[in-house]
Design a binder for these strands. Sequence first.
DNA 1: AATGATTATGAAATCGATTTCAGTTTATTT
DNA 2: AAATAAACTGAAATCGATTTCATAATCATT
Lengths: 333, 333
Amino acid sequence: MKIKDIAKLAGVSPATVSRVMNKNGYVKAEKREAVEKVIREVGYRPNEIAKSLKNKRSNIIGVIVPKISTETASRVLEGITQIAKERNYQLLISNTNLQIEEEINALEFLSNKLVDGIIISATEVTDQHLAVARQLTVPLVVIGQRMAGFTSILYSNNHAVHDLVDHLVQAGHKKIGFIGVDPKDKEVGQVRKQAYMDALNHHQLPYKEELVAIGDFSIESGYQQMASILKKQRPTAVLAVTDHLAIGAIQCIKDNGLSVPADISVTGLGDVKLAKYLSPPLTTVHYYFKTSGQLAASELFNQIDQLNMENKEIYVDYELRIRASVKKIERNS
Amino acid sequence: MKIKDIAKLAGVSPATVSRVMNKNGYVKAEKREAVEKVIREVGYRPNEIAKSLKNKRSNIIGVIVPKISTETASRVLEGITQIAKERNYQLLISNTNLQIEEEINALEFLSNKLVDGIIISATEVTDQHLAVARQLTVPLVVIGQRMAGFTSILYSNNHAVHDLVDHLVQAGHKKIGFIGVDPKDKEVGQVRKQAYMDALNHHQLPYKEELVAIGDFSIESGYQQMASILKKQRPTAVLAVTDHLAIGAIQCIKDNGLSVPADISVTGLGDVKLAKYLSPPLTTVHYYFKTSGQLAASELFNQIDQLNMENKEIYVDYELRIRASVKKIERNS
DNA sequence: AATGATTATGAAATCGATTTCAGTTTATTT
DNA sequence: AAATAAACTGAAATCGATTTCATAATCATT
């Protein structure tokens, strides 16, 4: 069933059917009704692809995520879908499985007029990313990383880590370990590490290599890195840059016959849904991932509508969630 | 940049450019090279929408999920994306937020030739669903529910619950509580409940209303339903139909000054990623959600390719994960 | 009743690709 | 060298919608 068929059945031209469908232009009441009747009877729905071609907009936005099966990604996606739904937009999702090459591919693929705009939740921003991004003919919004020349939605990594360290120091901790990730991820790898170092410095605490380990984003990695720290020196507290790393670390501490937080306090970042149901409940930083998705989508639509082409850096709120995984320690320990 | 422009630049016709792009038909080597050179130089990428219109396939499959920000959904999606990627397909995702109306809308919307096939991960299957599904002009695969006339990927709910009950009974439990969900969700609400009842019966244990409560899919609901059971009678074990319900239940038990599993054993279903990091680690059933996504996608592609139009019911594997949240009880208790 | 303004309608061009079809060039066979 | 087959090429039709443009019908005004 195409518009021509409907036109024939209703005894009008395709142009008139189109006018009825889109409620624009003049159509005499009787003809409109006739057309509407036919449409209803045959259950006609226009071919969205043909519409997109003619209208030069697909009502689809592309979303590139590093790994869809993570809580972060799914919460961000939830925020995006919500705003998209309000605007009658659909989401085309590329899951890049943490592979940069895939990210570039996805960017290139989506740029072929298939989508009206792109949101990328990136872990790394390479020169290649920038090169491809600059070629895009549709607006792009970045979540989680700074990307020169584009609007970015950022997490207050610096502040958040400072808050965590402050909290630990206030609880009397002086030997604070750190489990981080690869510095290729600027925001999580570099900024959080730097914030940790700055915060130590601010409290006049020494930075010690032996208390620092770098892993990836998995729980297992948290376990391993914690083990490597314990082999060298025993901190009284550990700051892990993600909740998953923290969970792995806690497991490792327990497996070593130690207790959290009695022997070692642990904090994470991210506030995974189950963080407060762990034993002990995890002290962490709650990030409003859903909000960041909403913000990204709103900004993107502003650009799609040409309302606001200026590039911004928007920081999304966070909140320290103090739970039982951090314990005050005695002055003399 | 469109194909016409490339043709002009390369001194050939659009037809030839098309032949080069798609590597079909005859093209003299020198012309091919000339065209390829131009394509490379201007970075030409064809308009995917125009291609879709002409080719009558978009290389996009639609996926409808009840709530994207759940571990189940994201693991299923991961499986789907993996298979889709192999086939050079993209995913158009509709998040329906558990609203049936939205599900129907999404089905209708996607049917307009926008996608080459649809996968729906459903919680309910109503007559409306069926009516719309039957009108579809593209293949449909259902995950998680049975839908007459369509291929479904199903979880072995019956077997899994039997296994759990067997496990509890073997551990000496006779008063086994149950936290379920709304029967509108046939597979999770009805099948799992029925399996619980059948299993009790099989072990010649009485079914007691007081030990049964029905909630929704949230952790909070698990908490509340556990509370309502405790008010009436104290079971020695509780089978919750999802891990989240189980986690809520455990929290409730703890808050009532009781211990898991010393006082009450708890099991879930689903094997959430963090299940084994809880205290106690949760005994549950591991479902291969990612596999179900892969299966669904494979079946869908079979149908898209017209290889196999027969409707199947495919059961995806599961595995009992025995952990510390269930404890053997003494004969005399 | 004549004029101008408004409303109404469809034929045809268009979006950017693919493909058929007919015609041309090159290669192979006798 | 002629006949036949194979390789090559581009003009034009096509996918299914929208929109412009020209024209026709209706309405309002004097």
